[in-house]
Design a protein around this nucleic acid. Structure first.
Lengths: 328, 328
DNA sequence: CTGTTAGCGCGTTCAC
DNA sequence: GTGAACGCGCTAACAG
């Protein structure tokens, strides 16, 4: 910066003003400085800037297994929105999620001087970790829940999504709908289970015992085999598309035609679902939007202060394809 | 830090020494300082530290569409390895990849003061962007290629993987193998195309015109329909699993039995492949390992200086499942 | 409109 | 083994 100042024949302060779009700079000095900057290929040092402004313009993201479609898409949305707003994104992906690991990750990010943190926290354990976070750091939870008044939440309405799926099946004339649930520690499992049960009860239908899955195609496959062995199963709602894929595979192996004999619905609408055999009817979640909302909320919190607690719920939509049909 | 020093009755230098595990500190003073640190809940300011050491302990990652399975897994590996080594990871994911956007991303990261950059650059355009990067910044390319002597590369042997797939099909007695390729601007498309062609030529077989895909299941679906309409097609090698899924879907729709009439092989081994109908024979890439290697190489480059250029090739493996069978 | 001065929180170099 | 001074590159506050 000193070099640029010398080159342009001004003080380093003026260079700083040009860099920060300060109004009080004469156009021609500004031009001289800008020219010097490009001539010297000068890049400012954001670390030094962060030291004095106490703002690093970096946001932290803590997530569990960024390899999964949901987290990956959410983070993508976060990153795009953050960069557009001029922020960097520093990521920590946890293999095991518990109160300590989330706390540690946030501490770690805090040392680095992040201005705020998004915790992608679809598990109860992660959500409870939110409770113990140090106050003062702006935090928003994506897909989480919390009792704290100073932590904002952005999430997709899981209950509504499950209702959409279940009602669709009921409208097709199915007597009831079986459910393959996700792992119990996930909020999304709980929400989908609730929505499914509520839709069934609203329609006065029997509520079968849900089958426990773990999000993996394999668990869906096992559940699918169990279902095929039972009597009277005509409609299945799997808590995600991977498990629905497993169901499709199991039924295919056993020669049970889908959707003729059994209708199947998933949840997520991963890019592959449209090309499953048969193409999967599913609930679409717009993770991108969730990511963008997270950044909006977080930046607002950073800028206007901790008063601006918000809770944003994104509505899912329903995609009908060929894995569902009217009951015979 | 001043507070801690006061609390422990020492100077802030001594606190700094304790924090950095400096040997010249008496055990009891060290204990006093450590106690003061925990009592005050002190966290050091890494920004200030970075300013004076000129090391931010942050690594940058530039990637295209982090939603895709390959990049997401690679980045996961990178993040794990980096954090283990005590580094932060700052991510930039590009929606369009060209020389300028990659350059801009690296510049952006440079301003932030990253100690090194991993460019996940499976496209030619990204690779060519590597050529124009400013010298001095340690850079490693994951899945890229470059003529620069100061940029290390870590990649998976695409040619070998394609040969594995093609030879497997040939060994099953198929006369030749058809290929659905990825988009031409991707290095991986090129490598897989080459490997497929080489394996065919080695065995003195006719080389059919490849069908152009774009990685999406839809493009595989279209290609599958074309293939079904042709005579004598008994074996297909799709350049990724998503396109293979599309092929499976198209053949299923048309009533062409897989693998009885047509055998299908994919590439990547995404978690879903095992549960396709039928389960997909495919080439497995260990993205995790690639990510870890990238960090190893990058850190070596940062520590020992720019002399340590390396090129690391990871071998893919082959997974036989039920989508391939002997030719009739 | 522009320059001067001070200091952000730390590590490094020297004294002691 | 420990402390005092100095400076990393920048912005804020004030002076001119």
């Amino acid at each position: 910066m000193a070099d640029v100042a010398r080159e342009a024949g001004v003080s380093h302060q003026t260079v700083s003003r040009v860099l920060n779009d300060h109004p009080n700079v004469r156009p021609d000095t500004r031009a001289r400085v800008e020219e010097a900057i490009t001539r010297l290929g000068y890049r400012r040092n954001l670390v030094a800037r962060a030291l004095v402004t106490k703002r690093s313009r970096t946001l932290g993201v803590v997530s569990f297994d960024t390899t999964l479609y949901g987290p990956a898409s959410t983070i993508y949305g976060i990153e795009q929105a953050a960069r557009t707003a001029g922020y960097f994104v520093s990521i920590v992906s946890l293999k095991t999620i518990d109160t300590h690991s989330v706390r540690d990750a946030v501490d770690y990010l805090t040392e680095q001087g992040v201005d705020g943190v998004v915790v992608v926290a679809p598990q109860y354990s992660a959500s409870s970790a939110l409770e113990s976070l140090p106050a003062g750091m702006p935090v928003v939870a994506a897909e989480g829940t919390t009792h704290r008044a100073d932590v904002s939440v952005v999430c997709i309405d899981q209950v509504e999504g499950a209702k959409l799926a279940t009602r669709h099946l009921l409208e097709q004339g199915h007597e009831t709908v079986w459910h393959i649930s996700g792992p119990p520690e996930w909020l999304e499992s709980e929400g989908r289970l609730q929505g499914w049960r509520a839709a069934l009860e609203e329609a006065d239908r029997p509520v079968p015992e849900p089958l426990a899955g773990d999000w993996s195609p394999r668990s869906g496959y096992e559940a699918g085999k169990s279902l095929a062995a039972m009597d009277g199963v005509t409609a299945v709602f799997a808590a995600n598309d991977q498990m629905a894929l497993g169901v499709l595979r199991a039924l295919g192996e056993l020669g049970v035609p889908v959707p003729e004999q059994i209708s199947v619905v998933g949840f997520d609408d991963i890019p592959e679902s449209e090309f499953f055999s048969p193409p999967l009817t599913t609930v679409r979640q717009d993770f991108d939007v969730v990511g963008r909302h997270c950044i909006e909320v977080l930046l607002r919190q950073i800028d206007v202060g901790p008063t601006a607690f918000e809770r944003l719920v994104v509505r899912p939509s329903f995609v009908v394809r060929s894995s569902t049909a009217p009951a015979r």
